[in-house]
Computed example of a mutant assay.
Amino acid sequence: MSNHLLSGIPSRERNRVLNHCESVELVFGSLLCETDQPYSHAYFPLTGFISLVAHLDAHRPLEMGLIGSEGMLGVTLILGVRKAPIRAVVQGAGNALRITSSQLLRELHECPELQRSLNRYLYVLMAQLSQGAACIHFHEIQPRLARWLLMTHDRAQADHFHLTHEFLADMLGVRRSGITVAAGELQQQHLIHYSRGEITILDRAGLEAAACECYNAVTDCYSKLLG
């Protein structure tokens, strides 16, 4: 398993960075950073994935973005800002490479291709966050759920994963009953199988057709900038 950002830079730079990384387990539900608190580390997921979650007082949490092996948690460090702009929670268990935020900033001075790659990834992540905000406002629950399942499928590297109604409702910012109806409709179309929190993707192409335009918009942006 590898991280796309690290595998895409020259071996000299990659080896420099890897020499300062440690392998860590991503434990489901673990808090990796909190809004407005300093980053201790940046994370390059190898397997598993991380949710970027907005949290307002008196409101349920709302997922704004996902990070898997295509990306990195802590990319805003390249702007010279050490505080996290949003909470990050492990959503899919796996493994990652992590590097201290201070060491990453030092390596950027010696690794121009890494700097270039992270600049581009920051643009892609901003596109994902802005597209997600529009999606929440304008699109119905079912196509949003289909989009979210596709994003999770991309990062889970498996057709089967565990997601409860309550968890999905929190991630999409909707009532649990809305998830029940939307998941039931996708199951009736034989796109997924969903039982007691266990989801299996049955028809990837059909799920893409059911998803809103936001899924392709973000994946196309990533492909154009980072291949």
Rank of each mutant, 00 (worst) to 15 (best):
Q128C: 06
I179A: 05
C212Q: 14
Q142K: 14
T164S: 13
C135W: 08
T164V: 05
Q188T: 03
G132K: 03
H153V: 06
A127H: 04
H193G: 12
H193T: 12
R144C: 02
A158K: 15
I141R: 01
L145C: 01
G178A: 15
Q189M: 04
C212E: 10
Q115A: 07
G197R: 03
R155G: 03
I199E: 14
L207D: 08
G184L: 13
V174S: 05
V181L: 13
A205R: 14
D203T: 01
I141M: 10
D154A: 07
I141P: 04
H139E: 13
S130A: 12
F167T: 11
L149F: 00
R155K: 10
T219L: 01
M126K: 07
E208R: 14
R120H: 10
L172K: 05
R120Y: 09
L122V: 00
H193K: 15
L207V: 08
A217S: 15
V124Y: 01
T200G: 09
Y121Q: 05
A133N: 11
L172S: 02
H160E: 10
L150M: 14
T219V: 13
F167D: 12
D170W: 01
D170K: 06
D220Y: 00
A217H: 13
H139S: 13
A156E: 05
A211S: 09
R144N: 04
D154K: 00
A205T: 09
V218F: 09
E198T: 12
V181N: 08
Q188G: 00
H165M: 02
M126R: 08
L207Y: 06
I192G: 07
M126G: 15
M171K: 12
Q115T: 10
L191S: 03
R120W: 08
H139P: 02
I192S: 09
Q142L: 14
D220A: 14
A211R: 12
A156M: 05
G184H: 11
M171L: 14
G132F: 00
M126T: 10
Q131R: 01
L150K: 09
R147I: 06
E213C: 08
C212V: 06
L186Q: 06
G206D: 04
R204V: 02
F161L: 14
H153M: 11
Q131C: 04
S117C: 10
L168G: 04
R176Q: 02
G197D: 06
Q131D: 06
H190N: 13
L149N: 00
I141L: 13
A205V: 03
R204K: 15
E113V: 09
I201T: 06
C214G: 07
Q131Y: 03
Q128Y: 05
Q131S: 07
N216L: 11
